[in-house]
Amino acid sequence: MTVENRELADELFEPAQEQQSAKSISRPAMTYWQDAWKRFLKNKAAFAGLMLIALIILLAVFGPYANNHGYDEQNLARANLPPKVPILEQVGWLGFDGVDNRGIDRYEASGVTDYYWFGTDNLGRDLWTRVWHGTRISLYIAFLAAAIDLLIGVAYGGISAYYGGRVDNVMQRLIEILVGIPNLIVVILLILVLKPGIMSITLAMVITGWVGMARIVRGQILKLKEQEFILASKTLGAKDKRMIWKHLIPNALGPIIITTMFTIPTAIFTEAFLSFIGLGLQPPVSSLGTLINEGYKLLGIYPHMLAFSSIVISVIMISFNLLGDGLQDALDPKMRK
């Protein structure tokens, strides 16, 4: 415990001239969303998910216009063609050379000179157009269902938790009844009553789908209600409207967004499932579910009919789940430093 005295000059023991300000905050001002975005970018998987979703949405919007075939244009002369893509046709093992699994070049056999990138189905419809058209409709249904879930769920859960007491009690019992009835039965009954179509499928999914959202929002609001900043706002004389829009909803936004992100792939899957069992959209309208249903029947002979729609649906589901996970971390205030 000795000190070296040699190099310590006398001046060093004078009172310090410059006092560092202890109160300055070094980091730049960042809003909650900037902060969350920064954290989100650090998560590679979630970012990849976001990019894939963007890509799929772009393809769903513009894909059908990439060639001149309509999604319901039938032509038996060019039925059951395997996929064939320019340039890629040179690489045999990729399977984009128009040769089917028996080794016959179907394009030559049928005398077709066009390229069908994803092949055609048993009625000669272009699968590229049908897959992206189907994706568009699936996504449309999913987003619509998620949006309606969001609206009903947030309103229902919010009202239930905010007013509490008897209101909460009655509203929660209602939810329990809804949850008690098997989802599929409700959906099937509804579709039997209504004509199958986009609206009736969406409605069928929404009729029970908002329950999850309502429960999450209720939990969040109940938790937030006890926080002291809500009490502080109350003691300042804030009205309900201010309390809900300024304090409660913004703070519950993280879990709400995450729940929505997980609702979308579930809705896509439900739509596909309903279409697959024949309760969904009716031909010639395509959706990912109907395409899978059609492709599955000819799986043994023409695997390409199932492959593309399955890949797209898998990519969508994985991407949304990755995105949801990433958002969960990014929006979690506990991850903040």
Partner: peptide, 27 residues
């Protein structure tokens, strides 16, 4: 008016300090 116990839960994390302080004035 009231001053609260927990400095962590007594301020709304989504508002800027200016908005928090000015809340009473706005109301």
């Amino acid at each position: 008016q009231m001053i609260f116990q927990d400095p962590y839960s007594s301020l709304n994390p989504r508002l800027t300090v200016a908005d928090i302080i000015a809340e009473g004035m706005d109301i």
